[in-house]
Design a protein around this nucleic acid. Structure first.
Lengths: 224, 224
DNA sequence: TTAACTCAGATTGGATCCAATATACAATCG
DNA sequence: CGATTGTATATTGGATCCAATCTGAGTTAA
């Protein structure tokens, strides 16, 4: 008898599972800013003890998604306008450079995949779908740069602001504009124009940031 | 009787202390690449249980300083030449941009402090002293940019390669060259030439990276 | 009335104990 | 003698328990 050898070692711990679930919930905006994350309540939800929950919360804190005060608990992080602005500025710098490095290495297959993701973004009906398609479009292109560390940091910085970004995209003109910008970025990639792709990506991110801040301004003005 | 009100709330947990101590030991190269970090041994060293140790190890893993395999333990991370190269490239991009933003905002006081740190770097006699002075010099200038998120990422990326960098600086010409480059960066800052300071910083980091990789190449060539 | 105090409940931080897994070495079989 | 299997030990992952701290309602005193 011959069997395929399969590695059955468990790769995901309870901590990993809890971390991923909470991360997803925060990024997608299901947990509101400032909401308390009680350890035993979460432990019950996942049928574990508080140990993996605490470890997951610590990881989330390192990623800037929650803030913890000793003996007082953990809440979903709230970013100020200034903090959000800085992260968009950071992303613009980093992502424009990575797309510049990616363009010369892009394969036909990667370009086609990008067009598919671009259309998925346009036709997606819910915020979760947009967010996913948006990430796939950009990251799919970035992959060609072969810079795993850059990509890891890019992911982490998008994670911090993604919930705000998704809220911004609920406005139809924001989504339409993003789609137009995606189109022109992809065109530049197809033409092999790295500088243009970088410049468009930079503008794309800064545009989204400005638009987002304007909305936040308005909303906070109303609520006060 | 009147007393000044002082906040005595403990801010550092056992986890924080263990994390900081291990982080420092790894960054300064006291723990060798691939060295095993056994939970109970470390717990004994710090007179705690394994819980804070595990949490500290998880944080270190998120920072890329150690790698963990389920049920097999944690070892000090070993970076490949390609990985080191990418991180230097990343730092060059980020730090040159941050110094560009900092220059117009630099105060006389900050410039003077930078000169002090620059001299401390030149006169420091041990690797630990160089590393400290090097960080103080660069980060002191970056502070003026008022970009805390950028700075956090800069710190994290330097952490990953600092132990290799300190080893590189043990070669006297490496240290001398670094000192000369520091001087010209500071000069550009004094003149208010942001572009020049950015360009010099970029070259400074890439130089160090190239020099470091050459040494690694040689060493690994010998050991094989 | 109001500010300070007390104490009970809630919540987190850490220690100890048990379960799951990996590794090394002895035992067994061809 | 070599490959394989069983087993003992080491080590990590997770559960439960205890200690430390915060919070807030009720109480008391100026």
């Amino acid at each position: 008898m011959k069997l395929e050898t399969i590695d059955v070692r468990q790769t995901a711990s309870a901590t990993d599972l809890v971390f991923e679930a909470l991360r997803k919930a925060i990024i997608e905006g299901e947990l509101a800013e400032g909401e308390h994350l009680r350890q035993d309540r979460i432990a019950q939800m996942f049928n574990t003890s508080r140990i993996p929950v605490r470890e997951a919360l610590q990881r989330l804190e390192q990623d800037g998604l929650v803030t913890t005060q000793r003996y007082r608990g953990t809440v979903v992080a709230a970013l100020s306008a200034v903090e959000i602005e800085e992260i968009f500025e950071f992303r613009a710098l980093l992502e424009s450079e990575v797309i510049r490095l990616a363009v010369p290495a892009l394969t036909r297959k990667q370009l086609d995949a990008a067009r598919t993701n671009l259309e998925a973004f346009a036709t997606a009906s819910d915020p979760g779908g947009w967010g996913e398609a948006n990430r796939k479009f950009h990251y799919g292109l970035y992959e060609a740069a072969d810079r795993p560390y850059h990509l890891q940091i890019i992911r982490s910085s998008l994670d911090r602001v993604d919930r705000y970004l998704r809220a911004q995209l609920t406005l139809t003109d924001g989504k339409k504009r993003a789609h137009r910008e995606h189109l022109s970025i992809l065109d530049a990639c197809e033409r092999g124009d790295a500088d243009e792709a970088a410049s468009l990506t930079r503008a794309h991110i800064l545009d989204a940031g400005r638009s987002l801040l304007a909305i936040l301004e308005k909303r906070r003005g109303q609520s006060v």
